[in-house]
Computed example of a mutant assay.
Amino acid sequence: MLSDQELLRYSRQILLPQVDVDGQLRLKRSRALIVGLGGLGSPVALYLAAAGVGELHLADFDSVDLTNLQRQVLHDTPSVGQGKVDSALARLAALNPEVVLRPLRGALDADSLAAAVAAVDLVLDCSDNFATREAVNSACVAAGKPLVSGAAIRLEGQLSVFDPRSEGSPCYHCLYGHGSEAELTCSEAGVVGPLVGLVGSLQALEALKLLAGFGEPLVGRLLLVDALTSRFRELRVRRDPQCPVCGARHGQ
């Protein structure tokens, strides 16, 4: 049940016929893992906490740096030098004390990542490197958990949903293969702050749709954001039957 306080807090969301009280209850009973509490993870964590997702599991091994504050709006100047998980805990608890927060402060190895994914209903990859994205994808495929994946660098962003519960859904590896050893990070190539805010907000929206059960998630579709021209493009993405990550799950 929702308390009177919760009904009031989430009233504008509950007014939507696509959400209603039943959808809000589903959000309250949901658990989401956010991998990375930087530029993408900031709006993801803030909006999911504000929306009333019952449990947020927060994973990040890094500390807040002054250069982060241009885009990582979850953190502030007094939190510089503090662990990002601890900074996030304070901000999110102040935003919505109804939400249960589970900190994951260290780097996740294969075993701890598998356990973290198994403990939730949905995973949001807000990391900034290919190795982590591949590891998170593999863990989600193995556990059968949906993955909302976002990326942003320079003036370009990408977003997709990979859902191993759906027979036709590709996984991250189907789309990106083995990646590139020459992959750049924001610290090397730069990024404009509102772009990561936009992509992260869209990740949060996709998560709410999946958890509350409304709308059409971005499964099998890749959304491309061009911040320079303010244009969006959508590409269809098919599952690779020979994919070494998800092929075996679908009997290939």
Rank of each mutant, 00 (worst) to 15 (best):
L2E: 04
D4I: 14
D4F: 13
L8T: 09
S11V: 12
V21P: 01
L25V: 15
R26K: 14
K28C: 07
K28P: 06
R31K: 14
A32V: 13
G41N: 03
P43K: 03
V44A: 03
V44Y: 01
H57C: 08
L58C: 06
A59M: 09
L66G: 10
N68E: 03
H75R: 04
S79A: 14
G81T: 12
Q82A: 14
V85N: 04
V85P: 01
A88R: 01
L95V: 07
G106S: 10
A107N: 07
V117T: 08
V117P: 04
V120D: 06
D125L: 06
C126S: 04
S127E: 05
D128A: 12
E134N: 15
S138M: 15
A143G: 10
K145S: 05
P146C: 09
S149M: 10
A151N: 04
A151H: 09
R154D: 12
G157M: 01
P164V: 11
R165K: 11
S169W: 04
S169Y: 05
C174A: 10
L175V: 13
E188L: 15
P194F: 08
L195R: 05
G197N: 02
G200N: 09
S201Q: 04
L205T: 13
K209C: 06
P217G: 07
L218V: 02
V219G: 10
V219H: 12
V219M: 12
L228V: 09
V237T: 12
R238D: 15
R239W: 05
R239D: 01
Q242P: 09
G247M: 05
A248G: 09
A248P: 03
Q252N: 15
Q252I: 14
